[in-house]
């Protein structure tokens, strides 16, 4: 090194840093790097997945009961009368495209389990016009009953934020499974092969009336 005039500069000896301050890899360095990597992975993971998916808090809690009019004939449907049975509740609407996608599967699922006396399947019509809902059921078929969620109280009781959503309630009246989005592909086989057979084999609670 030299200054602009060309004179050798009084180069500082390499003693600005004491020898013992030279970099050493310490435990907390590793911990810091690990923490940063973990944070990075967390952010990276956040790039994918559905940001609108709300983790449900209802699994394992008692299913809210409801009373409401049947979509087709207006008679009163009361969920409480099905205590002791496995209930599949499907929230749907006529304006919902994904509901149409899963409808065939719902019919097939009902066909598979309808002979079981412990199985009940029920649709909940969500934020819909009555005429549209009836027309939908006429066109696409509805071998099981549908309750009309007139003021959104049923849906909000079940923490529903979009359709389709499907809940499975066990014989004790506890919500055991929730599916957000259409029942297609692996979701369908999960229900038909695992969730429903397991719950249907389960005994009803002794205090079930």
């Amino acid at each position: 090194m030299s200054d602009p005039v060309g004179n050798p500069v009084n180069t500082p000896p390499n003693n600005l840093m004491p020898d013992n301050a030279r970099f050493q890899l310490r435990g907390w360095h590793l911990a810091l790097v690990a923490a940063l990597v973990a944070l990075f992975l967390l952010f990276y993971k956040g790039l994918w997945g559905d940001p609108s998916a709300i983790p449900t808090v209802l699994i394992g809690t008692t299913a809210p009961t409801f009373v409401g009019p049947d979509v087709v004939n207006g008679s009163t449907i009361d969920l409480a009368q099905y205590r002791g049975k496995v209930v599949l509740l499907n929230f749907w609407a006529s304006w919902c495209q994904e509901c149409r996608i899963e409808h065939e599967n719902l019919l097939a699922l009902y066909g598979q389990f309808r002979s079981n006396p412990d199985f009940v399947m029920m649709g909940v019509n969500y934020q819909d016009k009555l005429d549209d809902a009836r027309h939908y059921l006429e066109v696409y078929g509805s071998p099981f009953q549908h309750v009309r969620d007139f003021k959104g109280t049923i849906s909000i009781d079940y923490g529903v934020y979009g359709v389709p959503e499907t809940f499975i309630i066990d014989k004790q009246g506890v919500i055991r499974h929730k599916q957000i989005g259409p029942i297609v592909g692996p979701t369908y086989t999960l229900l038909t092969d695992k969730v429903l057979p397991t719950l249907l084999q389960g005994a009803a609670a002794p205090n079930a009336s």
Binding site: Q127, K151, G152, T153, S155, I156, Y161
Partner: peptide
């Protein structure tokens, strides 16, 4: 949204 209106009603 309708859901929000229903929630306000509740």
């Amino acid at each position: 949204s309708t859901l929000a209106a229903q929630m306000r009603q509740i």
